[in-house]
């Protein structure tokens, strides 16, 4: 108890927990859709683009989030369109864009500031990285993501479950796919500072995968993923605070532990699971 009080006496911890919970919630909700649509890797690709954008922003002395958000949203659109129309298939497109952006980012950094703690924080995340402005931007972005997700929940389900049927019965699937891409881009960018661009995609994939081990309906998967994601974040942050472990990695390890437990539970409860 005293420990928790002590944790909350630091403003940076309060900011980190607040922002973290919002990010974890958004990531879990979108994660279920992305995993089911076989887009698990899109988070990884976008976070590398985010890294490139952050590198350029810091080289030019601009506010990192203001540069990264539009760039990553554009990249999300690009990935989606590439996957839909061109001859380059989705996974290959993601590989091209993500390694390309990473290379640009690393080059820009080594030409300007060189490899320092800032860069390390971009890659692996930092609990201290949240400024006041970041908190406000993140809260606003998270509110947008949660609001849109709630309003379009049933349509997102329909488009995820069966895109052809949804389109045939008059749902504008192009619009909802773009919406999912934009929301994902937002979550990636706002989550990247804390989780690190190498680890943020785990926040999208792990809770959804864990929840899908045990849950049997879409709604329960969504709710379960949200709960897992937020609890893992809080536990991970606490561990990170107590033992000075890297924040992003601690959270991911919590998620990994939960996933393994759920995997074992699944094996026990349904031995012949498909």
């Amino acid at each position: 108890m005293q420990l928790i009080l002590e944790m909350f006496s630091y403003p940076f911890m309060v900011r980190a927990i607040l922002v973290g919970i919002l990010i974890a919630l958004c990531a879990a909700l979108l994660g279920v859709t992305l995993v089911l649509k076989r887009y698990s890797m899109i988070g990884d690709g976008l976070s590398h683009v985010g890294f490139g954008a952050l590198a350029i922003a810091s080289a030019l002395n601009l506010a990192p989030l203001r540069v990264a958000i539009p760039v990553v949203v554009l990249a999300a659109f690009g990935l989606l369109r590439l996957g839909e129309t061109s001859k380059i298939k989705g996974d290959a497109a993601i590989a091209l864009i993500s390694s390309g952006a990473l290379a640009i980012g690393v080059t820009v950094i080594s030409m300007t500031t060189g490899m320092n703690t800032d860069v390390y924080n971009y890659l692996f995340g930092s609990i201290l990285s949240m400024s006041r402005e970041d908190v406000i931007l993140t809260t606003a972005a998270a509110a947008v993501v949660l609001g849109l997700f709630a309003v379009f929940y049933h349509r997102i389900f329909a488009v995820t479950f069966d895109e052809t049927f949804a389109r045939a019965t008059g749902t504008r699937t192009g619009f909802y796919n773009s919406l999912i891409a934009v929301l994902t881009a937002l979550v990636i960018v706002i989550g990247m500072r804390m989780m690190g661009s190498l680890l943020i995609s785990s926040l999208i994939v792990f809770p959804a995968m864990s929840a899908m081990r045990l849950c049997r309906t879409y709604r329960s998967v969504i709710l379960h993923a949200a709960v897992i994601s937020v609890s893992c974040l809080v536990v991970g942050l606490t561990i990170s605070y107590l033992y000075a472990t890297p924040t992003g990695a601690s959270i991911v390890l919590c998620n990994l532990a939960v996933f393994l437990v759920y995997l074992i539970l699944e094996r026990i409860t349904r031995p012949s699971s498909r």
Binding site: H154, D162, T171, T217, S220, R274
Partner: peptide, 23 residues
């Protein structure tokens, strides 16, 4: 539609699937 591979492992209840036809 002809069934796709995605659907075969999709966590959704029958009610959720049927209702989505109403959208």
């Amino acid at each position: 539609p002809q069934q796709t591979q995605v659907q075969r492992d999709f966590p959704a209840s029958v009610r959720e699937v049927v209702l989505s036809g109403c959208l």
